[in-house]
Amino acid sequence: MAKKKTRRTDHDLIPDLMRFIGSYVVMTEAQKVVLATYVMHTHIAQYCQQTPYIFIHSPEPECGKSRLMEVLELLVVRPWMIVNPSDAVLFRKVHADMPTLLWDEIDAVFAPKSAQFHEEQRGMLDQGHRRHGRVPRFIGDKVTEFRVYCPKVFAGIGTLPDTLSRRSIPISLKRRAPDEPVDEFILIDVEPDAEALQARIGAWVDEHGETAATTRPTGIPESISDHMKEGCFSLFSIADLLGAGEDLRKALEEILTGDRLDAQQTMRMRLLTDLRLIFAVEYRRTGKARRFMSTDALIDRLHGFEESPWSTYYGRGLEAKDIADLLRQYGLHPRLVNVKGERRRGYRRNQHGEDVGLAEVWLRYLGADETAVDPDAR
């Protein structure tokens, strides 16, 4: 008698999608749960009343944003990967096909210097989260109402316009550390696994898609905003049907109540570099790596750098709150520490409990800790 093959169950879908996505990009478990569920959502979006957007961002380049977009392209329904589309192409493609829009390098569109030239696109995206969203345009000698609803995934550095940000689930990526391996992404090798997952998703959607899209979920965390809550109805319904409801609720609560990326990536990297230099000078001077420096001491040294922007930052000089704002996206926060009997607020070099240390961030984004820096190199 032939041995039966092991059948993957519906409840394996979310974990299997998480494993596939997480094989090629370093992410948190919460981010994997959200993206796996969102992949499922794209396949039933045609039945839904709303769709949330996804915004994949990072403090700096080379953190895996484009690779994650390539992975998602293999899994979502009707993927359309774009960079800098014209208004005419964008409107007509979405109207005709209702694709899953995968928009990479969107920071080039909504950067402060270029946003004024892309108001048409922003208006289209503002309306595109609702199934019946329409944007009228005068084409030729008549008014055409373009359908603008479809799932949308954006990737970039910086921020989205506020109206888009409120409708987007942020996926914040970090630069991969040396001890965080990922699988090699060779398209011809990964396509068979992706196609198998697509087939399983299709079979599930045929049986449960309309139910998932039209079921009103319960138990949505109160911390999720009203702007986001309705858009995520189908995500909760999908996760509940697939046995991942509690995981998704915790994941979304964690992600949506966290800090969002600001638009100061260049100044952040400059600050990281200068802070590392400050610690390097102390190391070369004393032969010991400083474990902590107060914010006041750091500001004093930053203001002392020649040809630096810190003494004239915002026309008033760098302040403690500016350092906190710039470093927050790396997971760095000022802490109170006892120094010679006095309580001082500042930043630790090494990780302390759950707190990220400067050295970890230097390693991720600058490639070395302060002991490897020549303080005379400036």
Rank of each mutant, 00 (worst) to 15 (best):
E230G: 02
E230V: 15
E230Y: 13
G231C: 10
G231S: 10
C232Q: 02
C232V: 11
C232T: 15
F233E: 09
F233Q: 05
S234V: 13
S234F: 04
L235W: 01
S237T: 07
I238N: 04
I238W: 05
I238R: 03
A239G: 09
A239S: 13
A239V: 06
D240G: 07
D240A: 06
D240T: 12
L241M: 14
L242G: 11
L242D: 04
G243A: 07
G243N: 03
A244Y: 07
A244G: 12
A244C: 09
G245H: 06
G245M: 03
E246A: 15
E246N: 14
D247Q: 15
D247L: 10
D247E: 14
L248W: 07
L248N: 10
L248G: 05
L248Q: 09
L248I: 14
R249I: 03
R249C: 06
R249H: 07
R249F: 06
R249E: 06
R249L: 07
R249S: 11
K250F: 05
K250M: 06
A251G: 04
A251K: 05
A251N: 09
A251T: 04
L252N: 03
L252G: 01
L252Q: 07
L252E: 06
L252M: 15
E253V: 04
E254M: 08
E254N: 06
E254W: 02
I255G: 02
I255A: 09
L256P: 00
L256K: 02
L256C: 10
G258K: 09
G258E: 05
D259A: 12
D259F: 07
D259N: 12
R260C: 01
R260A: 03
L261G: 00
L261A: 13
D262F: 00
D262M: 01
D262A: 12
A263G: 11
A263H: 05
Q264D: 14
Q264R: 14
Q264L: 10
Q264F: 05
T266G: 09
T266M: 06
M267C: 01
M267D: 12
M267G: 00
M267Y: 10
M269E: 11
M269Q: 12
M269H: 08
R270Y: 12
R270D: 11
R270L: 13
L271R: 00
L271F: 03
L272H: 00
T273K: 15
D274K: 01
D274H: 10
L275A: 04
R276M: 14
R276A: 14
R276N: 10
R276I: 00
R276L: 03
L277Q: 05
L277S: 06
I278R: 02
I278G: 01
I278E: 03
F279M: 15
F279N: 04
F279E: 02
A280W: 02
A280Q: 11
V281Y: 06
V281K: 10
V281E: 14
V281Q: 12
E282A: 15
R284K: 14
R284G: 02
R284D: 12
R284Q: 15
R284A: 12
R285C: 02
T286P: 06
T286Q: 07
G287T: 11
G287C: 11
G287M: 10
K288N: 09
R290L: 13
R290H: 08
R291L: 13
R291S: 12
F292P: 07
F292R: 10
M293H: 06
M293Q: 15
M293E: 12
M293A: 13
S294R: 07
S294N: 05
S294T: 15
T295G: 09
T295M: 08
T295Y: 01
